[in-house]
Design a protein around this nucleic acid. Structure first.
Lengths: 178, 178
DNA sequence: TGCGAATTATATCACTCTGACATATATCGA
DNA sequence: TCGATATATGTCAGAGTGATATAATTCGCA
């Protein structure tokens, strides 16, 4: 399930422009999938060439043409086919945890500040999601949103309960490297 | 904190070859950071050019030379400098959740199978981590490991408690696309 | 009414990183 | 003995990011 295929899936839910697909990624998928314009626009171009989507350019005063993409029957088949393939394992990159590995090379103040920021970020994402909860009318949307909330809450609780493990570490900074 | 910098950090803990660094990623960081040979070897080469690491090649019978890398004082400074920069937000790609968005286009059996596999994968990772727990002697290692366990447990509990939200969905497959 | 910021909209590009492949040999279990 | 796994380094096509470019509109605020 690369970005190309996921864009195709989004188009099964209705016509959209590249810009609208980007907004969808940001507003609905941001807690488990991200995509930049640099991958969305080329993906739409490629799929147009492959006959999976059709593009109708709508001229607009001054602005660039608005290109509305529609999925074709062959694109729909390609997407159903993709749903038959098993998902690859999650790809995750947490620079925060990577830095925590080296908490004994940082001051306690620095470590605390990083954790405070992390907790604040998690809280603001949770607040955002709470606000979205009313919009999640279908069970599927609730499932997706709830998954993100469960994970973020677990992270936040863990940090609050265990931050002492890395904050205390700097006090032992005399240890020799092994 | 790109892969280059993280390799440098790993070398602050002791000399290592590219192969050993890869093993470290797999055994210790796999739940929050991944790196392939295709990024590790070029990273070591680049850092050698920059004077951040030194390389001592050790001839071996038959096999390619074993190249042991050592961090230099200037490399150590560069790493401490990197720890002063704020981490970027986590990058996450979950093809599993992406597919769940389209559970109404799959059969209930398919959805159930995907969730069963996901739960089994989470369980095997948790088992693996439980086995590692004895090796995590420092508070920092415990913090890192515990974080992963907390997140995986939260995911598993969520799936067990809420899978009905996506498994029931297929029963309503008569709905028209909006 | 006027000004800056945000939004709408498409696109390119250098760079990073992945995942598959190539190349060897040794060692371990069945 | 034979296949799988481990040791060990490396390349490369292709995917994707993040910054940048361009340009008009609309919104909030003073």
């Amino acid at each position: 399930m690369d970005i190309r295929t996921l864009c195709l899936g989004i188009l099964t839910m209705g016509d959209a422009t590249g810009y609208e697909i980007k907004k969808f990624f940001e507003e609905r998928l941001s807690h488990f999938y991200e995509a930049s314009f640099g991958s969305i626009y080329p993906a739409l171009g490629k799929m147009t060439d492959d006959g999976w989507v059709r593009c109708s350019a709508q001229a607009q005063d001054g602005r660039p043409d608005k290109k509305v993409y529609t999925i074709t029957p062959s694109g729909r088949m390609a997407f159903l086919d993709a749903l038959g393939k098993d998902p690859r394992k999650d790809r995750i990159r947490s620079e925060f945890l990577a830095m925590m590995m080296f908490s004994d090379l940082m001051s306690t103040a620095r470590v605390s500040s990083l954790i405070d920021t992390r907790i604040a970020d998690l809280q603001s994402k949770l607040d955002e999601m709470d606000a979205c909860a009313a919009d999640a009318t279908t069970p599927v949307d609730q499932f997706i949103l709830g998954f993100g909330q469960a994970v973020y809450r677990a992270e936040m609780n863990y940090l609050q309960d265990n931050r002492h493990l890395v904050e205390a570490q700097a006090l032992m900074s005399g240890r020799a490297a092994e």
